Amino acid sequence: MEHALPSRDTLKAQAKRLRADLAARGTPITHAQALETLAHQWGMRDWNTLSARLGNDAPTGFAPGMAVTGRYLGHRFTAEVTAARKMAQGHWQLTLRFDRAIDVVTSKHFSNFRRQVNCTVDACGNSPHKFAGGQPQMVIDPS
């Protein structure tokens, strides 16, 4: 099973933590050595090879604390991402906390307001799940 590579920023942060942990244990290493070690852990010959595999694209995705806007079940919303996990094939599992509750029922006889939802979206912010009319249940606007 192939795992998606993390962003360059994530890898550099991991290297920084690795350096700090090893230094605390009495084995200091340079930042370059930490980057090389991470490259080996990802099955690459060296940091340059891993860095080339990452490409030059700016990191994309979702992170806790990020403010997002979009439509959920056709209702406009503003929300905060409270949890984000990257999944296979570029999908994200998110927990969103809406600034204002959204009625998730279309019945005229009762309502059910939700302030928080869990959803899965692709890299463009569209859920694979559709509701009436074939529209995605969740659409997160591009930032």
Rank of each mutant, 00 (worst) to 15 (best):
Ala34Pro: 00
Ile29Val: 07
Thr30Asn: 07
Ala20Asn: 12
Asp21Val: 02
Ala20Thr: 10
Arg53Phe: 14
Asn56Tyr: 15
Thr49Met: 10
Asn48Trp: 10
Trp42Glu: 09
Leu22Ile: 10
Arg19Ile: 04
Leu38Gly: 03
Ala23Gln: 06
Trp47Ser: 01
Asn48Arg: 15
Asn56Thr: 15
Thr37Ala: 13
Leu38Pro: 02
Arg25Tyr: 13
Val68Trp: 01
Ala52Tyr: 02
Thr37Ser: 11
Arg25Pro: 03
Ala23Tyr: 02
Arg45Tyr: 03
Ala23Thr: 01
Trp47Arg: 04
Gln41Met: 06
Ile29Phe: 03
Val68Glu: 01
Pro64Trp: 08
Gly61Trp: 07
Asn56Ala: 14
Ala58Phe: 08
Asn56Cys: 14
Met66Glu: 08
Ala34Cys: 08
Ala52Arg: 09
Pro64Glu: 08
Leu38Met: 12
Val68Arg: 04
Ala32His: 14
Gln33Trp: 05
Leu50Gly: 02
His40Pro: 05
Ala52Asp: 09
His40Asn: 14
Leu22Asn: 09
Leu35Phe: 00
His31Ile: 13
Pro64Ile: 06
Met66Gly: 02
Ala67Arg: 15
Ala20Pro: 08
Leu35Pro: 05
Pro64Gln: 10
His31Ser: 13
Gly43Arg: 11
Ala52Trp: 00
His31Gly: 10
Val68Cys: 02
Ala34Lys: 04
Trp47Glu: 00
Pro59Trp: 12
Trp42Gln: 11
Ile29Asp: 02
Leu50Asn: 01
Leu54Asn: 00
Gly65Leu: 04
Ser51Asp: 08
Met44Cys: 12
Asp21Met: 08
Asn56Arg: 15
Asp21Glu: 11
Leu38Thr: 05
Ala32Gly: 13
Ala32Thr: 15
Gly55Trp: 14
Ala32Asp: 15
Val68Ile: 01
Glu36Cys: 06
Gly55Pro: 06
Gly26Lys: 12
Ala39Arg: 02
Leu22Gly: 09
Ala67Gly: 08
Thr60Gly: 14
Glu36Gln: 14
Leu54Gly: 03
